[in-house]
């Protein structure tokens, strides 16, 4: 039983490493703050949550498991809030989102809309 838990925990730790590296690569690969936040915050959150899940599987008793669950909930509240605050300041400063080159787009290719001009507050 302990062995199964250890193997599962190791899987969670390994996925944390994969997501963490992915987040850092995305942070350096994308050109603008929004996309960097997407990569950094999302992959970073998943990495840390994976570590917590691994720790949850290895928890020796229920008291410690309950504390880890509370820490996970707190982290799930605080991590996206931090990303949101940075993104909000970027948005309020009036920055256009980055558009990838045409052949690399995953969605429709219309590029002539002027509806997304950012608000100029200052």
């Amino acid at each position: 039983m302990m062995l199964v838990r250890e193997i599962l925990a190791l899987l969670f730790f390994a996925s944390a490493v994969v997501f963490g590296i992915g987040g850092v690569v995305g942070l350096f690969r994308f050109p603008d703050p929004y996309s960097r936040l997407q990569a950094g915050s999302l992959a970073g959150t998943t990495a840390v949550v994976s570590v917590f899940f691994g720790a949850l599987l290895l928890a020796p008793n229920w008291a410690i498991a309950a504390r880890i669950i509370v820490i996970i909930v707190f982290f799930l509240i605080s991590a996206p809030t931090g990303a949101h605050i940075v993104a909000r300041f970027t948005w309020n400063s009036g920055l256009d989102p980055w558009r990838p080159p045409l052949q690399k787009r995953s969605g429709p290719d219309e590029d002539t809309d002027e509806t997304e001009r950012p608000r100029r507050r200052r």
């Binding site: 690569v25 995305g26 997407q38 999302l42 980055w98 558009r99 995953s106 969605g107």
Partner: peptide
Amino acid sequence: MLGAILTGRANP
């Protein structure tokens, strides 16, 4: 997201 980071395909 990992897929998008590796391939660079996105439409923000």
